[in-house]
Simulated scan of single mutants.
Amino acid sequence: MKKKILLAVLGAVSVVSLAACSGNSNTEIATMKGGKVTVSEFYDKAKTDQNSQQMVFNMILSEVFMNKYGEKVTDKMVDEQLKIAFGDNVDEQLKAANMTRKEVEQTIKENLALQEGLKAHVKLTDEDLKTAWDSFHPEVETQMIAVTSEDDAKAIQKDASKKDADFGKIAAEKSILPSKEDKGKVKFDSTTAATEVPEEVKQAAWGLKDGEVSDVIPVNSAYGSSFYVVKMVKTQAKGNDMDKYKDKVKEIATDAKLADQAFTQKAIGEELIDANVKIKDEAFSNILSSFTDAAQPEKKSTDDKKDDKKTEDTKSESTDESK
């Protein structure tokens, strides 16, 4: 699956670990004239912080999914994600980011275990597959040029559209894409990540015939604006036989499920219930409720009715007392 696993921020110290490992909750963190700060005081204050609540939830999630799905994650899968995240110079990049390889590999493994666990809950219907098929486009071969100036892009598009234009040479001279080293050649299909080929570029490319050059395609992202010019080298019609591309179609349908918040919330809730997770500290009593409620909607409905009845009873008692 063509996914970039997001790396969790490393280096944060767990408030739970700090309290648990101290051995004595009265251990002093700092002292000053007329006072001191103890581990217990720190923990009591820090555990109600939103970041601490999220940290404990992440720890629970990692523990649950690693216990059940960790064995499905191979070293090869971890290495692939390392390369995606940090490129070929992994160790140099980690050193610059002040992170150890062991820490990052563990984080990647936990994220992959979560992905494996979520995929285990995917049950594709005929409707899911039809929707995926409708959005699918098979692989095409193109040449691309990207620049940061719209005026430059317009000039490039004009030159590239000439009958005797050498698109590959222009790409090598003008493009900011890595593919400039290969005359701008880029192959992609509808499952290619938007970080590799922006959706705007894909949609524009689908409408091109072999040898045709696109208009300037503006792309806005978190990194700024860029402007693409695409030449279609070899397009491909998908036809009507979905079975020919069944693996790709299933991948699209599965990705759609994993991107559905309602689905992932329910799946995580089911795993938390199956793992029999019990919250022992009242400060964290609600960190799982939105997930477990999604997994047990009938229970939530019953609990809501009970809460409504309690509210009505309280109002009734208050009315009686006022009389």
Rank of each mutant, 00 (worst) to 15 (best):
D75R: 09
T191V: 10
K154W: 01
D307F: 01
M55P: 02
N67S: 10
D210P: 04
K72T: 09
N111D: 05
T74F: 07
E312M: 02
K231H: 02
D247V: 08
D293M: 01
K310T: 05
K83T: 15
P297I: 12
D210C: 02
K238A: 08
N89G: 08
A237V: 07
N24M: 07
V249G: 00
N220W: 00
E92G: 13
Y228C: 02
T148P: 04
D91R: 07
E282C: 09
I252C: 02
T38Q: 08
K309C: 00
S25V: 15
D303C: 01
T191F: 00
Q236D: 09
A193R: 11
D313V: 00
A113L: 01
N111C: 09
D215A: 13
A96T: 14
E141T: 15
S40A: 15
Q93E: 14
K4C: 12
D44Y: 10
K278Q: 12
V37I: 15
E200W: 06
I268Y: 04
L82P: 00
E139M: 13
Q115S: 13
K130G: 04
F188E: 08
A204N: 03
K119P: 00
S161A: 15
V249Q: 04
V213H: 10
D88H: 12
V201C: 06
K4N: 14
L124V: 05
M242N: 09
M1W: 04
L288R: 02
T31D: 08
D320A: 12
G70F: 00
